[in-house]
Computed example of a mutant assay.
Amino acid sequence: MLAGGATLGKYRLILVDLDGTLLDSEKRISEENKKVLHQAVKNGLYVTIVTGRSYVSAIDYVRELDLKVPVVFQNGALIYDFKSNAELFKSTLPAITAIQLVRLAKQHSIFSIVYEDFYTVPDMIIDEDYAGVHLKYLEANMWRVKRVPDLFTYIKTKKEVAEVAMVGGRSVISFISKQLDDGISVVENSVLEDEAFVEFFGPGSTKAHALDVLLSYFQVSPSEVVFIGDNLNDVSLMKRVGMPIAMGNAVKEVKEAARWVTTTNDEDGVAEAVKILLEGDVVEL
């Protein structure tokens, strides 16, 4: 069970992203990563996951690590405590807002996905084909995808949804984002060949905001937190913690926000970083 709690030097809480960080290219947690994270807990640190993945796509990893602490899903839209089996935070999009987002996407020829719910599958609702550079993500999640004749009609049967994602030209989605109300949380997840995958959530749905919930729960300060990440949706959290660490495979923006860079996700980069922290031999950039 990953829990922990006693103070170990300067840092007390380790937050770890999943894809591109704790998971290797085959979407597995290596034995070395598991061993070192469990050692961190034995040495007195709290350890948990902060991921852009949904509950349904990340729950197997939570169980594999035997986490009994709060875990952050969908970039902070859902924070679930596996000790008390209760939600600590959940933010949704009203159906009327989801309709507005899908309408704007279609007006600008942007592919959209409506994530219907946090806990059930299929949860990714689409009404058209997609063949862009993010196709690999869609193919890997086909078990979660439901195609409907018309997204507008489908959303109108709901009171709220978990999120809406837009996939397409980065500049176009940026233009759309500037037209939205302040209450919508916009998270740029990744960019491939100038095609962005951008997610739209209810208020307070960012990894940086999730940190506030975790700080209160674990009774630690930002300076006592380590965060290891790799992609654009990790940058806001990187800027708030005492020890931001970038993976060797991280995008440029993450490396620029980090205090130092570990090895890649296929080289047990999380384990390498945590071992250095445990040994107290941190060399910063």
Rank of each mutant, 00 (worst) to 15 (best):
L2D: 06
A6N: 10
G9A: 06
L15K: 11
R28C: 15
K34Y: 15
Q39F: 02
V41K: 01
Y46C: 00
V47E: 12
V50K: 00
T51Q: 08
T51S: 04
A58V: 14
R63F: 02
E64I: 12
E64C: 09
K68Q: 06
K68W: 05
P70R: 08
V71I: 09
V72G: 10
A77L: 03
K83N: 01
K83G: 05
S84G: 02
T92V: 06
T92Q: 14
A95T: 04
A105D: 04
K106H: 00
K106D: 05
Q107F: 10
S109K: 00
I113D: 02
I113Y: 06
D117N: 07
D117Q: 00
Y119F: 15
V121W: 01
V121S: 06
I125L: 00
I126V: 07
E128V: 14
D129Y: 04
L135A: 01
Y137V: 01
A140V: 06
A140F: 08
M142E: 00
V145H: 10
K146R: 15
R147I: 03
V148T: 05
V148N: 06
D150W: 13
I155C: 06
K158V: 09
V161Y: 10
V164M: 09
V167S: 13
G168N: 03
S171N: 11
V172W: 12
S174D: 11
I176C: 10
K178V: 07
E188W: 07
E188H: 10
V191A: 04
L192M: 10
D194S: 02
E195D: 04
F200N: 10
P203M: 13
T206W: 06
Y217L: 15
N249A: 03
V254W: 06
V254P: 07
A258I: 11
W260N: 04
V261C: 11
T262D: 12
D268W: 04
V274Q: 07
I276N: 09
I276K: 01
L278A: 12
V282C: 13
V283N: 11
E284I: 15
